[in-house]
């Protein structure tokens, strides 16, 4: 059975549809990539899945339970955690404390929360920064903390919103390694602009264009699809490459 099912999600802002009738499923253990040009509605979709925005229409089903438009903390309890495209690290807390906020979700004592947060930092290879304050980190560091924090809530499915954008080659290579490790234990859905990273990492890809799902398929299918070529490189380029 699928772990997450997004069913006919539609979101209007005023009269404008940011998402139109988007349906897809995520299997347990899978890594699903979500791509699309700017303004395709990727982040809006994540906001609705994670409870930050209420869909105008449609449903979000997590492990058979309807979690549509529930409060974000309830959705986190149901087993879905996310990171933010515009990073929201807690600036005044240390890296370890940032992650503890996540681990407190399943641990009520500070001692246990601190211990588990330490383990998670180990897993995402960021222990050496445990005592740094959130505001002292580089962008790559902040993104890593966001991932660690989300993992510390022990989710069954992890939504990553551009966890690699804006990083240099070495930083994003490290981040890729972290995601490769994590996906062994948790289902991942990730939005990413950096195609050279997403394509080799993903099992399947969903392409959004202008708020709609254009298609889904394996990375190879997507990369040779004329509609995708048209959306990314222009109609005429796609026509010529047929």
């Amino acid at each position: 059975m699928n772990l997450l099912r997004v069913e006919g999600i539609t979101k209007y802002f005023g009269g404008l549809a940011a998402n139109k009738d988007i349906t897809f499923e995520v299997e347990e253990g899978e890594l699903l990539g979500v791509i699309g040009p700017n303004g395709a509605g990727k982040t809006t979709l994540f906001e609705q899945i994670s409870g930050f925005k209420k869909p105008s229409e449609g449903r979000v089903i997590l492990d058979g339970k309807d979690i549509t438009a529930q409060r974000p903390d309830k959705i986190c309890s149901a087993g879905l955690a996310r990171t933010f495209q515009i990073v929201k690290t807690f600036p005044e807390l240390t890296v370890l404390e940032n992650v503890m906020i996540g681990s407190f979700h399943r641990e009520s004592s500070s001692r246990a929360a601190r211990k588990y947060a330490g383990e998670v930092l180990e897993r995402v290879r960021f222990s050496h920064k445990a005592d740094a304050l959130g505001k002292e980190l580089t962008l790559a560091g902040r993104k890593r903390v966001e991932v660690a924090r989300a993992v510390a809530t022990r989710p069954r499915i992890l939504l990553l919103d551009e966890a690699m954008a804006g990083l240099n080659k070495q930083e994003s290579a490290e981040a890729v390694e972290v995601v490769r490790d994590l996906r062994k234990e948790v289902t991942v859905v990730m939005i990413e602009h950096v195609m050279e990273i997403l394509m080799p990492l993903s099992d399947r890809i969903v392409v959004l264009v202008e708020g709609q799902k254009l298609l889904e398929g394996t990375p190879e299918e997507i990369a040779s699809n004329p509609q995708v070529l048209a959306a990314y490189l222009g109609e005429r380029f796609a026509a010529r490459n047929k």
Binding site: S50, C76, S77, A81, K88, E92, G102
Partner: peptide
């Protein structure tokens, strides 16, 4: 520090 982040973490 950040309410949205806090609520996403449960």
């Amino acid at each position: 520090n950040n309410q949205e982040a806090a609520s996403s973490l449960g």
